[in-house]
């Protein structure tokens, strides 16, 4: 069995997990949610094996490197981080419905990696500039942060859904299945804090890598600048909460808004703006 088969199975597991999570709300069935969680865990295990296998495959090809060096691999890793994050939160805080909001993201990332015409799944050797342990540290830290921000945005959406279903007056299943507003608010904040820490580490390791490779730790290239913009947005989010006491709906919107900045940093810069970063180059 090769890694692409395993990653294909992962995509299937994430699709089914999404479907069962949706079924949980549509058919008001706790059992469906449990199956959704099970599928997410199963997918995560298969994906972990798939990533590991891809790593060994690259060594078998004589061009060994960690599978974190192009758009395809980064998307796979993003899906892995997001799913892991969801599963951990589910175990710790019993927030199963979260899967309804995060598993689609994991599935879309896997599907986009596999089917987009822009993205090649081939294992390619590393260009000289990418042969650095700082690159690995950079990708890992950034994507743990991105995974956390994805989950924070999902929690923000849950907050808004819960809020609107509450104000709707009728006691719907959706409303009762979602955790309490204060709990969602608290989780959103915690997740943003966690993501902020990792995004900071991601920007720092990226700067060190750039300095080792090119002799400039900051060159205001589009990707760098957008990561800084994203960092500013989350810094604003932390400060409005901590210093002027914003909570609830506003933080939920900021979590969603911040994630759009993450997405733009990740994709928008590659496809819409020109920059140094190699992920965007087709092929």
């Amino acid at each position: 069995m090769d890694s692409s088969t395993l990653l294909g199975l992962t995509m299937l597991a994430y699709l089914l997990s999404t479907a069962f999570h949706a079924g949980q709300l549509v058919f008001r069935s706790k059992g469906a949610g449990l199956v959704g969680l099970f599928l997410a865990v199963l997918g995560l295990l298969i994906q972990t094996a798939g990533i590991g296998l891809r790593w060994t495959e690259s060594y078998a090809m004589g061009i060994g490197h960690a599978p974190l060096t192009n758009m395809y691999e980064s998307l796979v890793f993003f899906a892995w981080c997001t799913t892991l994050f969801y599963v951990l939160i589910d175990f710790k805080y019993k927030a199963r419905v979260l899967g309804m909001f995060t598993m689609p993201l994991s599935f879309i990332a896997m599907a986009y990696a596999s089917f987009s015409g822009h993205i090649s799944a081939d294992i390619k050797p590393l260009l000289p500039a990418l042969q650095s342990n700082w690159l690995i540290a950079h990708v890992v830290t950034c994507f743990i942060g991105y995974g956390a921000f994805a989950v924070a945005a999902a929690l923000g959406v849950m907050y808004l859904v819960k809020l609107s279903s509450q104000s709707g007056g009728t006691n719907t299943y959706t409303e009762s299945a979602l955790p309490a507003l204060t709990e969602l608010d608290d989780l959103t904040h915690k997740t943003i804090v966690f993501g902020f820490m990792w995004l900071s580490a991601g920007i720092i390791t990226g700067a060190i890598w750039a300095n080792e490779a090119w002799g400039t730790y900051w060159s205001w290239d589009a990707k760098e600048t957008w990561s800084l913009i994203t960092w500013f947005l989350y810094a604003i989010t932390l400060h409005v909460r901590f210093t002027i006491g914003w909570t609830g709906k506003r933080i939920a919107w900021l979590a969603i808004f911040g994630f759009f900045a993450v997405l733009f940093t990740y994709f928008g810069v590659n496809y819409l703006l020109a920059g140094l970063h190699s992920y965007g180059t087709p092929g």
């Binding site: 205001w220 589009a222 600048t225 957008w226 800084l228 913009i229 500013f232 947005l233 810094a235 604003i236 400060h239 409005v240 002027i244 810069v269 703006l273």
Partner: peptide, 16 residues
């Protein structure tokens, strides 16, 4: 501080 963070973020977009 909030105003400045926002303005720095917003104007930084121009150069990208």
């Amino acid at each position: 501080a909030l105003f400045l963070l926002f303005i720095l973020a917003a104007t930084s977009i121009i150069g990208t």
